[in-house]
Design a protein around this nucleic acid. Sequence first.
DNA 1: TGAATCTTTTATCAAATGGTAAAAAATCTT
DNA 2: AAGATTTTTTACCATTTGATAAAAGATTCA
Lengths: 211, 211
Amino acid sequence: MAKSNSAKKPKQSRIQVANNEKILSAALETFATFGYRGSTLDQIAKSAGMSKPNLLYYYNSKEDIYGAILENILELWIIPLSKLNADGDPMEEIKDYIIRKLNYSKNNPLSSKLFAQEIMQGAKNIKSTLSGPLKQQYEETVDILQQWIDRGLLKNINPYHLIFMIWATTQHYADFYFQIELLLENKESDKIFKDAQNTILSVFIDGIKPE
Amino acid sequence: MAKSNSAKKPKQSRIQVANNEKILSAALETFATFGYRGSTLDQIAKSAGMSKPNLLYYYNSKEDIYGAILENILELWIIPLSKLNADGDPMEEIKDYIIRKLNYSKNNPLSSKLFAQEIMQGAKNIKSTLSGPLKQQYEETVDILQQWIDRGLLKNINPYHLIFMIWATTQHYADFYFQIELLLENKESDKIFKDAQNTILSVFIDGIKPE
DNA sequence: TGAATCTTTTATCAAATGGTAAAAAATCTT
DNA sequence: AAGATTTTTTACCATTTGATAAAAGATTCA
């Protein structure tokens, strides 16, 4: 048995790494925009700057490409981003959480959009992640919020829906950016996100602080 | 020139009316879920309970069906729902507006989802509506909010983004309902929307009232 | 009832789409 | 540089998809 660095990495050549990146990047953009069924291999191949058979040399099928991307997103985004520190200051924790989520929308809008596409299409491919890891994370966060409420550090509102509100407002700036851009013409991205952050924080802070 | 009831209605037969309804309903569901490109005529025809050629007897093309549905949605939803009364009580007006939007999400989730699909795919087919009527409505609403802010009836926040926040939170309950349902298992729709409304109103009311 | 009209089905089509085989070209290894 | 390996291209293929033509079946209305 030959030596191997790690269990999962069967030594990729430079060209493999490069093409893999091009494919994943092109596929993310396509799938995020048109969803799984609305995306074509020709389109992805073209966007990645290679022929369709060449693309299929790296991934055996459309499903394989999609699966690889979903895996990335679920592992890198949804789970790790959702941490609240129960021992921290509630207002600071929530504030930081909102900023984190909004920055993610700004820097990784395609991930957010792909996630939105998946949900809107019935979450067929991520149902197990949603009802497994994500749900666990969600309920832990609810618990923390409830503890804060019980200790009088947070206004008495429904923590389940408070989380939805935060997700909704922050993800909106990724998923609906086309509309936002159109309605706020002349504003550049930095300005938009700065104003958004101020507004969202202002509403939430006053909206959830104990009375 | 023969008599005609109205300029736009060339007397539809009963069977035409019935099939038209079936088609529009099936198409809305399909397009809202998979977007324009992800939807197929076979799928729509099957869902409408008729053959594909029969479907194409009523509408000449896939684009025609899509166009008919978009028209409906834009006219019935986006524009009329966005009215704020500048002379009313700001808190009451905004509260009513949120309730209206949230009820629409509850009762017409497919319209909301189709709109979301359009935006996420670049808003190609509704760009003129967005930058025309919707934008006008949007800016009028911004003006009203700004007046209230100037008169000290509303906290001094960015009205452009306040509107986005309201849109985001209310539409979220239509667009992401699959996820919400999955995370809030055992809860029925009425309960979910009741809790959502209380939470959203609570946060916004305290979040935007003058300090 | 029967002619005229409207609706549905059957049989197709060309283009697009996901995918394969195998040869050609490029790269790596020694 | 030669041989082995990896990467890319060319040429296809079977299905699916949007769409049409024309015949068959229903409805309507005189």
